[in-house]
Design a protein around this nucleic acid. Sequence first.
RNA 1: GCGGUCGUGGCGGAAUCGGCAGACGCGCUACUUUGAGGUGGUAGUGGGACAUCCCGUGGGGGUUCAAGUCCCCCCGACCGCACCA
Length: 801
Amino acid sequence: MKYDFSEIEKKWQQIWDEQKAFAAENDFTKPKYYALVEFPYPSGQGLHVGHPRSYTALDIVARKRRLEGYNVLYPMGWDAFGLPTENYAIKNKIHPEIVTRQNVARFKQQLKSLGLSFDWDREINTTDPEYYKWTQWIFLQLFKKGLAYKKEMSVNWCTSCKVVLANEEVVNGVCERCGGEVVHKVKSQWMLKITEYAQRLIDDLNDVNYIERVKTSQKNWIGRSTGAEVDFDTTAGDKLTIYTTRPDTLFGATYMVISPEHPYIEKWADKLENPEEIKAYQAEAAKKSDFERTELAKEKTGVELKGVCGINPVNGKEIPIFISDYVLVSYGTGAIMAVPGHDTRDYEFAKKFGLPIVEVVQGGDITKEAFTDCETGVMVNSGMLDGMTVEEAKKAIVSWLEKEGKGHPKVNFKLRDWVFSRQRYWGEPIPIVYCEKCGYVPLPESELPLRLPEVDSYEPTEDGESPLAAIDSFVNTTCPHCGGPAKRETDTMPQWAGSSWYFMRYCDPHNQNELASKEALDYWLPVDWYNGGMEHTTLHLLYSRFWHKFLYDIGVVSCKEPYAKRTSHGMILGENGEKMSKSRGNVVNPDDIIREYGADTMRLYEMFIGDFEKSAPWSTSSIKGCKRFLEKVWGLQDCLTEGDAYRPELETVFHRTIKKVSEDIESMKFNTAIAAMMALLNDITDTGTINRREYTDFITLLNPFAPHITEEIYHQLGNSGLLAKAAWVRYDPAKCVEDTVEVAVQVNGKLRGKINLATGVSKEAAIAVAKADAKIAGVLNGKIIVKEIYVPGKIINIVVK
RNA sequence: GCGGUCGUGGCGGAAUCGGCAGACGCGCUACUUUGAGGUGGUAGUGGGACAUCCCGUGGGGGUUCAAGUCCCCCCGACCGCACCA
């Protein structure tokens, strides 16, 4: 019988659909398991071969859990708001809603053809008003708690298109579409106070099972540092506050630097002697991104603010103040004290501008480079701090500053508040009304969802406002508070909004009255296993943890953290080892693979391709190996015998393989799980037959990986129900051990032979057997034995002179 | 620049705690089957004048009876960096 994968796959996908085989039950008394993968952005290109890597992996986990008896929730949906759809809609004059519908239909058909066991009854879409109603509701709660506020922020502004650009649309400092000059422009933007949660977002990482590199990335991104804020008096008669992590080096501060956007430049305008130079520098800085500005490799630039000096609080010395783009207005206070002796960037700057470099920590050679090691140094040239270690000096100076009223200890985070406004059409409207009398007023919850208005043009307006600003019927409204005339907020939310809480909606996706019922949330949350890309670690993952914590604070959810476990898959690269992209011409279309090899082979190959956590290049020729494996599994039907127990020669290898596959799935080592099944198959085919028990167990083990073929074989074996609903195979640990083991024998660390030993023999007996071996005896002849090492089941090493 | 990851045959990759490097698969070679095609099977496959020896996990040092694995230095590659998602 031929293995007709396309027939088999179509047949079982239809049966699973009809029977709703993978629908999560609403029986909250059963043990639950919530497996989650990041829902895709339904782009116009269709599914990428990278998507199924993550989806298949957790599909394997979900299917195994069902076989183990859990009530499993494995849902899927669409993160469909966003820039590419909007740009496509503008270009082709199609409504983004229609574009989205088409893309979703294509993605869904592609996902279904992979045989993924999603519960399609719980499908969600962030652009559905019934969904974004609750995204808006969450925003209102944030607003009411003071966590949403307006702030002047700089945006990328294309001077020729007159449009606010996303960072991605700025390439080498010019507009991606027209090549026009891009500058920073200040706009009033909605912000979310994620910084208020910074400490908790770090602390609660202790309570979750995330892979270590995810935790590390999040911690570094949040970037907690302890230091001090210090007030420097200025000759302008005011105080300039700086933030430093090295208050111990205060005596070494020989100048100050403020960011080109610092408000004091305006404030000191009448005292500054070189305003033109300063203005020119500010204009230059406005063209650069933070990334370009802080690049250490680049030459330091800056301009002295002539006419105003700072006064070092510890020694009263007047020191110059510069503006330079390596100081960012968004971090700390936007101003620093520069200690060139002990900071690399300050050192370079001082060298370039001929500023004095004073050594205040001994231990390095500051004529060559800045000495930044704070472990070993001793304070010098620092008055009362002389002789102290850096650690002691930090404490001493901070308490002195506090006593003098010139500073205080300060914890700072690199994490910045979340810019929540977009001047775009295809996003959730922000449900706020601006009233001249009452200010920013939240829309009453009863008016949600605030729908996107139907329009013909999605182009932003001339002055960079959102397209919604051009629609008078949308903008003009009445104030919910005083009833007077008012204007709606016209900015929309970023794509991150809808994805920050979607895992909650899956718990109760059709609820009309709440984002999800408390009962459903309490049962399903937290997500037991969440897999996604490393690129989402610092934005999506952090944003959704922040929203979850907020919803915990207001009593919507009962657990502090949304995801109990987070893992991450590596990227699938093109055959040439580079990232797959249209421009590189190395894109593999999953549809072609499924058509030619079938979904089971595709799934198996994606799991076999390499270490799940690492990136791996696609290889069309390697797929054949997985196809051959499945064909052999299929072919076993022709050599079936009766029998309800493993044959003795296969017993150990069966138990071992079941153990290995069971454990490897849990630790994401899908590649070695498949290798073990291939090895077991080789052992079976060596015997020429397979009995019913062996075959049934083998296909059960393989079922989560290749669900269609195994379901069909199960059916062919005369079973009536679904294999997907049968029971997972068990192993007996006692039967995983062989009676004898082969042990390598080394002399002086070099392999000289191998011996067979009964498992559990003593060291003495083992070494005696080794010495009795003719070859080993020959090597040992005439040598003096210095040491004998025996590692049971592994190795014997005899050290001789 | 900051942060993260990685370097093993011709290729993808294995190698719980430091214990036989190269599992499993691709490719290749020989034979074989079917007859033809890109099918199936058997055997071989890290390198070296390749029968028991020597060398081999990016490079150099170190620790150890024993190092792909631990430590130090160097080289190289990849990913993210807040309005792409």
